[in-house]
C-alpha cells in the first residue's frame, strides 16, 4: 500500500466526473460531475501534501473548497433561472448561441 493508490483513485474519480459532464444532459447531474472532478483534484492535493510532508496542499484544497462552494451557489442559481424561463434543465436545450 502506497500513497499512489490515492492518486489512482483520484484519477478514476476525475475521469468519471469528466465523462459525466460529457454524457449527461441534465444540467444538475453534469454539474455534480464537475464537483466530482474538483474533489478528485482536492484528493490529489491532500495526498501530495502528505507525500511531501507539507501543509500547503491542504491549504490549497481548502481554497478550492471555498471557491467550489461559491461556484455551486452561482451555478445552481443559473440552472434555476434557466429552468424557470425555459422550463427545462437540459443542457442541450440551452443552445441559442449556435450560429
Amino acid at each position: 500500500m502506497s500513497l499512489v493508490n490515492y492518486l489512482v483513485l483520484s484519477g478514476i474519480l476525475f475521469s468519471i466526473g469528466s465523462i459525466a459532464v460529457l454524457t449527461r444532459r441534465n444540467a444538475i447531474v453534469a454539474f455534480m460531475g464537475v464537483e466530482l472532478m474538483l474533489n478528485a483534484a482536492n484528493l490529489t492535493l491532500v495526498t501530495f501534501g502528505r507525500l511531501h510532508g507539507d501543509l500547503h496542499g491542504q491549504v490549497i484544497a481548502f481554497f478550492v473548497m471555498v471557491v467550489a462552494a461559491a461556484e455551486v451557489v452561482i451555478g445552481l442559481a443559473i440552472i434555476v433561472s434557466i429552468f424557470r424561463t425555459r422550463g427545462s434543465a437540459s443542457i442541450d436545450d440551452a443552445n441559442l448561441l449556435k450560429s
Partner: peptide
C-alpha cells in the same frame, strides 16, 4: 466549419477534453 458550432455545451466540453 460552422457545423462544429452546434450550440451543444457538451460538444464543446468534449473538444476541451
Amino acid at each position: 466549419l460552422r457545423r462544429l458550432q452546434n450550440g451543444f455545451v457538451r460538444s464543446y466540453a468534449a473538444v476541451m477534453l
